[in-house]
């Protein structure tokens, strides 16, 4: 047996391997990139969906941004409180609380309520449909309901019901992919747990709205007058709720003649006065925006359940914590 025929390939291939291997070893020293160990720790605390909701391209880039001090510790809306407190621990800063916001389709003009102006038979895609005369709905601001946002959502939070898209606030992770893709810009941010929302996006004048859709905001401003907290503003013929001021009393939704304001009446609370704790200071009666509390000085007060709108102002103002919302 000729040992040369074995030796040669072993030595030459082994030599090549050794050469490249040591070359790489040297290269890894020469071209070593120092990575902040914090980046890796932060990366591990993130959900890893790479959705981009933080404004960075993926979780790695966000972790990098936090480690550099450019991004806030609570910048990840998907990870929520849990992730931000972990990151804050790693960075040694206060997390600060981030109020969760969820996406919502601001249109309730479903098949039975909004009129069609043409019959669309093209590609089942809102972007394509929007290019043909702005879509089939007679209201040019409404949801087309062809499901482009459903495809864009990575979390299965959107579904189509009766011709318009609906977003499940429980599943929504506030990543913003649907807002980005919607050609009608009919999706907006609403605080999680908000019980009153103007479900209309039409910036048309009242008459045009009325002609195209039975649940559109016609700009009558009845809601503005009804709101005890000055939380409703008007812009482009459309009511806008200032969520910072809104107390979810739902008065506006009751007054709205076209039901363009949606309210979760099931969640409506009533004020209850604990008779043992009430000292009859009359503060609650004075503060109540609908005069639903009556009572004489130094006597236990009573809430008129018919009138109470559950705004919670009295609960906040009561110096003895004698009022609770149920």
């Amino acid at each position: 047996m000729d040992f040369n025929s074995l030796l040669k390939p072993i030595v030459s291939l082994g030599g090549l391997g050794l050469l490249f291997g040591s070359g790489l070893a040297v290269a890894s020293r020469v071209f070593a990139v120092e990575v902040d160990p914090k980046v890796e720790q932060i990366r591990d605390a993130l959900p890893g969906a790479n959705c981009g909701a933080c404004g960075y391209p993926g979780c790695d880039a966000f972790a990098d941004g936090v480690a550099k001090g450019e991004a806030p510790a609570n910048g990840c809306p998907v990870g929520g409180e849990e992730a931000s407190s972990k990151i804050a621990d790693i960075m040694g800063v206060d997390a600060g609380s981030s109020e969760k916001k969820v996406a919502r389709v601001l249109c309730s003009g479903n098949n039975s309520k909004a009129k069609e102006k043409l019959e669309y038979t093209g590609i089942k895609d809102c972007k394509a449909a929007a290019m043909v005369q702005g879509g089939s709905k007679s209201c040019q601001f409404g949801c087309l309901g062809l499901g482009t946002c459903v495809d864009a959502c990575n979390f299965d939070a959107i579904y189509i019901e009766d011709g318009i898209a609906k977003i499940d606030p429980e599943k929504c992770t506030s990543c913003g992919a649907c807002l980005e893709t919607c050609p009608k810009d009919v999706i907006g941010w609403v605080p999680y747990g908000q019980d009153v929302v103007v479900d209309c996006n039409s910036k048309d004048k009242g008459k045009e709205v009325k002609n195209g859709c039975s649940v559109g905001c016609i700009g009558c401003q009845l809601c503005v007058k009804a709101c005890p907290f000055d939380a409703i503003e008007f812009e482009d013929n459309l009511a806008k709720i200032n969520y910072d001021k809104c107390e979810n009393c739902m008065l506006c939704a009751e007054k709205c003649p076209t039901n363009a304001i949606w309210a979760n009446f099931e969640n409506r609370k009533k004020a209850k006065i604990k008779e043992d704790d009430c000292i009859g200071c009359t503060i609650c009666a004075k503060k109540c925006p609908v005069d639903a509390i009556e009572g004489e000085v130094k006597k236990v007060h009573k809430v008129d359940e018919e009138k109470c709108i559950g705004c919670g102002v009295c609960e906040e103002k009561c110096p003895k914590d004698a009022i609770e919302m149920k």
């Binding site: 040669k8 390939p9 030459s12 291939l13 391997g17 790489l24 290269a27 890894s28 070593a32």
Partner: peptide, 26 residues
């Protein structure tokens, strides 16, 4: 050793890609 072409070339390509990756990263 022409018969070792495939394995030798794979060795070259694999190390090359590794090297290029490090170089570009830096």
């Amino acid at each position: 050793l022409a018969y070792l072409q495939t394995i030798a070339f794979i060795l070259v390509i694999a190390s090359l890609v590794q090297f290029v990756e490090m170089f570009i990263k830096k």
